[in-house]
Design a protein around this nucleic acid. Structure first.
Lengths: 347, 347
DNA sequence: CTGAAAGCGCTTACAG
DNA sequence: CTGAAAGCGCTTACAG
C-alpha cells in the first residue's frame, strides 16, 4: 500500500543524521538545537510521518499491545469487561487484541501462542473453565498474565481482579432478610467454580447470622440459564418448600423464576422476595424490574488493565534484574465489591 | 521477560546458516535435504521456538492483524459483529485489535492513527455517526478500509457490508398486513441515517403495495430507546390515531411500547400487532416475546472480515502494480438480508 | 542443496 | 550539539 516516509528520508531532507531525527521524534531531544528540532518536526509534519512500530518494537522489545482472552464477547457478561480493559489500555497508550475461546482450553492455548508471536506485553485472561488437564498455554507464556473473574493457579500469573461473590451473596440474602423474608431459597448456577462456591457461602453466612439454619431442600443447583430458573422454581413449588424469598445465581435464572411464579399466580415482591446477581444487565427491562446485585464488570476490566500495565512498566523500569523482579513483583489479588441495586418496592 | 530462542541460535546448534533455518521454518524448504530439515525442526521444537513477528513484519510489510472500529462494545448491537469478525479473522490467521469510539469522530481519528502505527493490514469500521466535518482519519489511512452497518463515502473504502434495512422493514410491515392488521404506525429511531431512511422506505413501500396510502400522523421519529417507545406510544394513543399495529425501529422501542400498551389495557398481539428490528436481542426475554426482524450481525462481521482479508491478500498477490491494483479492486457492497422471527401467536 | 550478504526502519550507546 | 555504527530478528534474492 502507500508507503510511509521514514526517518531516513526525513534525515536527508533535513540534512542531519537519522540518529538526530530519531532523538527529536522521540522527544529525547534535550541536547538538540532548537533550529534543527523545529526543522525536523516541520518535515515530519509535512509528510505525515508515522513511525514504524515494528522496527521500534524489534529493538525496545515492547509492543504496547496487550491480549484479552475471554470465553465469548457475545455473552453479555463480557462486553463491559472488554470495554473497561480497552478504555484503560488506550488511556495508557496500549492497544488490545481480543480473543474468544468459547471456554475451550485448546483455543485458549492457540491464542496464547498467537499472542506470544505478536509479542504482546501482557495478557488479561478470563481463564477457560476449570479443567486443568492438558493445559500448558499459560504456563509457557512468556509475558505477565493477569486473571479476571476466574481464579486459577499458574506461575505466570502476576495478579487477579475478582468479584467478591461471597460478600455479594451475603448482601443479597441479608437484604431480603431485612425486608422481612425468612425462608429464602437459593437457585444456583453451576457450582463447580470458585465463583459459585463464594455465592453459596455468602448465602449460608447471612442465614446463619440471622439465626436461620441452612436446609438442604432450599438450595437448587443447575446452570445460569433462564430455563433452569423455570425448572428450579417449579421444583421448589411442587415440593411445597415453604419459602417466601428466592436468591438467584444470576438474572437469567431470576427471569425464569418470575415466569414460573406468574404461572402460579405469585407476584414479586409481594408474595416472593427475589434478588439475583446481575450478570446480563437485563434487570431493568423485565417486568417487574429486578432488584439485583450488580457485578462490577466494567471496573474489573479497567482495574485489570491498570494493574497489568503498571506491572509491565515496572518490570521495564527494573531493567535486567530479571530473575529478581519476577519474584519481587508481589502477586496481588483485588476483590471488587458488588452493589445492591434496588428496583422493587419493599414488601 | 524470558527471551525466546532465535533462528540464529538454532542455526548455530544445527551447524547451518540462518537462511536455511528460515527456509525450513517457513516451509519454503523444497530444496532443503530431509536430514537438515528434520534436525532444524527438532531443535526448534526443543527450545519451543516462537518466531519474532516484529522482525518478519518489518520485511514482509504485513502484520496479519486487522483493526475493528466500533462505537461501543457494550451496546448489544456490536458484540455479535465483533464475534463474527474475530471468528473469520482468526480462522484466516489474523488477529484483531478492537477500538471503541463512542461515536466520536475524534476518537476514531486517534484510533486510526494508532492502527496505522501498529501497521494493521486493514480496518473494519462501523463509522462514527454521519458528521463529516473535520473528518480525515479514514482519508489519510494507508490501508484498505471496509465499512460495516453504516455507509460513508471515502476513497480508502474498498467495500461495504450492510443490512438490507429497506427489505427488512418491508418484511415486517407486510407480515403485519398479512396478519390482517391495516392501520400500522411506525415508531422510528433517529431518522438521519441511511439505515433509518431505508427502514422508512420499506415501511412505505409495503403499505403502498397493499393499496394503503401513507399518513403523516402514523409516523413518529425519536431515538432507539425504551423511553422513546413509551412516549411515542403515549402520543399515538393520546392522539387517538386509529391503529391496529405498530412497527418499531428496534426492540428497545418495542419494549417501551409494550409497557405503555399494558397501561392502556391493550394486549399484543390481540389488540395490537407489533414487530421491531431486533437490535438488542432481548426479544425472546420480554413478555410477550416479540416478533422481530433479526439483524444478521454475526454474519455482517464474518463477511466483512472475509471480504477485507481476501482483498488484502489479493493486493499482496498483485505485488508492486500498486497504483493499478488500487483501481482494479472493485469496490463492492454486500447487502445482507434480514430474517423475520415470529414469536407471537397470530391475531 | 546451502551460505554470505543486504536490508526492513528504527534505537542506542559511544565518539567526537 | 550531532554523526557513524552496531544491531534488533528476520526474509530474500543471489551466488555457488
Amino acid at each position: 500500500m502507500k508507503k510511509s516516509i521514514t526517518i531516513k528520508e526525513i534525515a536527508e531532507e533535513a540534512q542531519v543524521s537519522i540518529a538526530t531525527v530519531s532523538l527529536v521524534l522521540n522527544k529525547k531531544d534535550k541536547k538538540i538545537s532548537e533550529g534543527t528540532r523545529e526543522n525536523i518536526l516541520r518535515i515530519a509534519q509535512k509528510y505525515n510521518y508515522t513511525p514504524n512500530t515494528m522496527a521500534r518494537s524489534l529493538i525496545t522489545r515492547q509492543t504496547r499491545t496487550i491480549g484479552l482472552i475471554i470465553p465469548d464477547i457475545v455473552n453479555p457478561f463480557f462486553p463491559e469487561i472488554a470495554r473497561g480493559v480497552e478504555d484503560k489500555a488506550s488511556q495508557l497508550g496500549y492497544s488490545v487484541i481480543y480473543c474468544n475461546t468459547d471456554d475451550k482450553i485448546k483455543r485458549e492455548d492457540k491464542y496464547i501462542h498467537v499472542l506470544m508471536e505478536k509479542m504482546v506485553d501482557g495478557i488479561i485472561s478470563a481463564h477457560s473453565a476449570d479443567r486443568e488437564e492438558g493445559f500448558d498455554g499459560l504456563a509457557r507464556c512468556k509475558v505477565p498474565v493477569l486473571l479476571i473473574d476466574r481464579d486459577y493457579d499458574n506461575k505466570n500469573v502476576i495478579g487477579r481482579v475478582l468479584v467478591d461473590n461471597r460478600a455479594g451473596a451475603y448482601q443479597a440474602t441479608s437484604y431480603m432478610l431485612k425486608q422481612g423474608y425468612r425462608r429464602i431459597a437459593y437457585i444456583a448456577g453451576c457450582i463447580s467454580t470458585a465463583t459459585a462456591r463464594g455465592r453459596l457461602e455468602g448465602y449460608h453466612q447471612a442465614l446463619e447470622d440471622w439465626g436461620i439454619g441452612p436446609e438442604h431442600r432450599y438450595v437448587k443447583v443447575g446452570e445460569y440459564r433462564m430455563q433452569w430458573g423455570i425448572e428450579a422454581a417449579e421444583q421448589l413449588l411442587q415440593e411445597k418448600t415453604p419459602m417466601d424469598g428466592i436468591f438467584c445465581g444470576n438474572d437469567l435464572i431470576a427471569i425464569g423464576v418470575i415466569k414460573k411464579l406468574k404461572e402460579w399466580g405469585l407476584a414479586v415482591p409481594r408474595d416472593m422476595g427475589l434478588v439475583g446477581f446481575d450478570d446480563i444487565y437485563l434487570a431493568s427491562l423485565v417486568e417487574p424490574p429486578l432488584t439485583t446485585i450488580k457485578q462490577p464488570n466494567y471496573e474489573m476490566g479497567y482495574r485489570a488493565a491498570e494493574m497489568l500495565i503498571r506491572h509491565i512498566e515496572k518490570l521495564r523500569g527494573e531493567g535486567d534484574t530479571k530473575n529478581e523482579s519476577q519474584q519481587t513483583a508481589a502477586e496481588s489479588t483485588l476483590f471488587l465489591p458488588t452493589e445492591l441495586i434496588v428496583r422493587q418496592s419493599t414488601k
